[in-house]
Design a protein around this nucleic acid. Structure first.
Length: 419
RNA sequence: GGAGGGCUCGCCUAGUGGCCGAUGGCGGCGGUCUUGAAAACCGCUAGGGGUGGUGACACUCCUCGUGGGUUCGAAUCCCACGCCCUCCGCCA
């Protein structure tokens, strides 16, 4: 949810943001009208209510005919107050709907347009020359690292087993991510992955993403698609000390239904229903958010450097930001078998949008509560195994292990085909 | 699965129909005292909304888990729901 006061002061900023996203400007005006209507309703109610309280105070002192008259008047008033209160409730509901419907204002500088209008900020690392690259699944199967056949047998399509060095590589990768995060002052967190509806709602994943989310009907709980959800909701309703940003590194499994992606990326483990991830999450003051965002990006790039894979950084266009983000940078790793870059990290600056929903605040210099800013960014996921295997493959199907990961596979620098 | 108990301002707690937005303690902050500290004493210490003002601020309304009901009037009475806790059983 965006700041309504800001919206009243400068509705054109919101309209411009909507245009950049390729979304309706009418949503802005709807919200403005709903805001206005609510304030009018509130004022009507308050006037009546004040009168009711005033007369009510006279009641104990009154007696006889005076009391009877008072009673008659207050009785009438009571009905009016109740009607006015109902009107306020209705206006508030309408406002909330309009409020939820409007996405975050984009950060100045974010590219305008849709999915394909991203801007490449830089390409980093040398793409390897591999004449006939094997894809990650073939490599993974030869190494006995990835087993999608049995994944499908046991759980269905888009499920897999990581076995042997596959399991070790993933654990090592995530461990490496946690170690780096801790080194930079993050608090490592292993959060719950089942959350209540309000936690899911608060983080904005029940809007456009609702069909992406697994819901456990019997218990009315949701499986999280990222630890961003339990990390953001961790401080819901709290007033934090944000002299310094508060940083968490969440380690969790993530679950996604991948509804509507039938036939897309069906081979291997690029797009799966369940994977593991280490996610950075920051709470900070709004004025710190921009710099914090760049720090998160830098930490992502540091991790990519550690596993020695070529990548590029893109500045995601406004129309592809999702409702919460004001700006988003993705790192895309080079995938030799596909001859293109694929997303492996994503860092979003949600400014105060998410925190406002979750009611997460801090105290400013004057001691007044203000809405905090939240940011998130990927530090490692199962998907990283793809560029790691593919970029480091050798003609015989063996795979070189990046130095940083060697300790996690028994010190080996090469993983050899099994059998 | 069964049976109980509880939800009040950071924490604990008082409050059974108007004088309660709410008592007291702890903690926190500020001050007095002290060379300094402790102790003692004094003061301050929830959040949100609306209106007015450039502003410090002023006035006002809402909030005692949530929603409804009774009543002229509800933290207090009634109903429903939610959440937390304890015990028993079962499973790990």
């Amino acid at each position: 949810m965006i700041d309504l006061r800001l919206l009243r002061d400068d509705p054109d900023a919101a309209r411009a943001s909507q245009r950049a996203r390729g979304e309706s400007e009418e949503a802005v005006d709807q919200l403005l009208r709903a805001d206005e209507a609510r304030r009018a309703a509130v004022q009507r109610f308050e006037a009546l209510r004040a009168e009711q309280k005033r007369l009510g105070k006279q009641m104990p002192k009154a007696s006889g005919a005076e009391k009877a008259e008072l009673l008659a008047r207050t009785k009438e008033l009571a009905a009016e107050v109740k009607a006015a209160e109902t009107a306020v409730t209705e206006a508030e509901t309408a406002l909330r709907l309009a409020h939820l419907a409007l996405p975050n204002l984009i950060e100045e500088g974010a590219p305008h347009g849709g999915e394909d209008d991203y801007v490449v900020l830089r390409e980093v690392g040398e793409r390897p020359e591999i004449p006939e690259p094997k894809d990650h699944l073939e490599l993974g199967e030869r190494l006995r690292a990835i087993d999608v056949e049995r994944g499908a047998k046991v759980s269905g399509s888009r499920f897999y087993y990581l076995t042997g060095v596959g399991a070790q590589l993933q654990l090592g990768l995530l461990q490496l991510a946690i170690s780096q995060a801790v080194e930079y002052g993050f608090t490592p967190v292993i959060p719950p992955v089942l959350v209540k509806p309000e936690s899911m709602e608060g983080t904005g994943f029940l809007g456009a993403h609702a069909s992406e989310v697994y819901r456990l009907e019997a218990d009315d709980l949701f499986l999280v698609g990222t630890s961003e959800v339990p990390l953001a909701a961790y401080h819901a309703g709290e007033i934090l000390d944000l002299d310094q940003p508060i940083r968490y590194a969440g380690w969790s499994s993530c679950f996604r239904r991948e509804a509507g992606s039938y036939g897309k990326d069906v081979r291997g483990i690029l797009r799966v229903h369940q994977f593991d991830k280490v996610e950075m999450f920051s709470f900070c003051r709004p004025e710190q958010a921009h710099d914090e965002h760049l720090r998160l990006l830098a930490w992502e790039e540091e991790m990519l450097a550690k596993v020695e894979i070529p990548y590029r950084v893109i500045d995601v266009a406004a129309g592809d930001l999702g409702s919460s983000a004001a700006r988003k940078y993705d790192c895309e790793a080079w995938v030799p078998s596909q001859g293109r870059y694929r997303e492996v990290t994503s860092t979003s600056n949600c400014t105060t949008f998410q925190a406002r929903r979750l009611n997460i605040r801090y105290r400013d210099e004057t001691g007044r509560p203000q809405v905090a800013a939240t940011l998130n960014g990927t530090l490692a996921t199962t998907r990283w195994l793809i560029p790691i295997l593919e970029n480091h493959q050798q003609p015989d199907g063996s795979v070189r292990v990046p130095k940083a990961l060697q300790p996690y596979v028994g010190g080996r620098d090469v993983l050899n085909t099994v059998r």
